[in-house]
């Protein structure tokens, strides 16, 4: 079971790129690792490191000002592409607890919720305003899931969030346990009524 989250407070880093795909968040070669932990060092691997392992200076997350950032302010369509949940695990292991963007890849968004990585959709103008603020000075955001607000300095931005998603964060429930507890009879009943042709049966070997 994952722990409930009500408030996230932390430093924000601007990642001013659209269409950041999950291949960039974690390259395929690191999907062979049989663990959810320790993937942070491979997060944005090709953008963070040169071939000799030294840090690339031009990548924003290598800037010492953002080394302890826990909120990423990203561009449009963040997390598109491959379904790899490792992208979420890598971001979390890097210390990221929330991503703010105008839009997200659908599968990435769901994967994030399942792992309690908060994804907040904001209008593009607000995202750009936050990115510019975070570039100019240290920007600390306080995200309150009960109030649906982002507070910084003397400002408050409201965001919209699906109630299902919100409840999940506020309660931190084990989804599988809940489904089994609340719906198992319905599932069994559904299965009893399934027509036989829906169930695959190996019947023949294809000749070639």
């Amino acid at each position: 079971m994952l722990e409930a989250i009500r408030v996230i407070e932390g430093k924000a880093a601007p990642l001013k790129l659209d269409n950041v795909d999950t291949d960039q968040i974690i390259p395929a070669e690191f999907l062979k690792i049989l663990s959810k932990k320790g993937l942070g060092r491979y997060c944005f691997y090709r953008w963070r490191y040169n071939e000799d392992g030294s840090l690339k200076r031009d990548f924003i997350l290598n800037d010492p000002r953002y080394s302890d950032a826990s909120i990423l302010i990203a561009g449009r369509n963040f997390g598109i592409g491959s379904s790899r949940e490792n992208a979420v695990w890598a971001l979390q292991d890097l210390g990221i607890r929330c991503v703010i963007a105008p839009s997200f890849g659908d599968i990435f968004y769901v994967n994030s919720i399942k792992n309690m990585l908060l994804c907040i959709k904001l209008p593009e103008e607000e995202v750009k305003m936050l990115q510019e603020l975070a570039e100019r000075e240290t920007l600390v955001l306080k995200i309150d899931l009960e109030k649906n607000t982002i507070e910084f300095k003397d400002n408050i931005i409201r965001f919209e969030m699906n109630n299902v998603v919100r409840e999940r964060f506020l309660q931190g429930l084990d989804e599988i346990e809940l489904t089994l507890k609340n719906h198992i009879e319905r599932i069994k009943k559904y299965e009893e009524n399934m027509p036989g042709f829906m169930i695959p049966k190996p019947r023949r070997f294809v000749p070639y």
């Binding site: 949940e85 599968i107 769901v110 994967n111």
Partner: peptide, 9 residues
């Protein structure tokens, strides 16, 4: 297409 947590579910 689903993620690993959904796959476990």
């Amino acid at each position: 297409g689903i993620g690993t947590s959904e796959g476990e579910h």
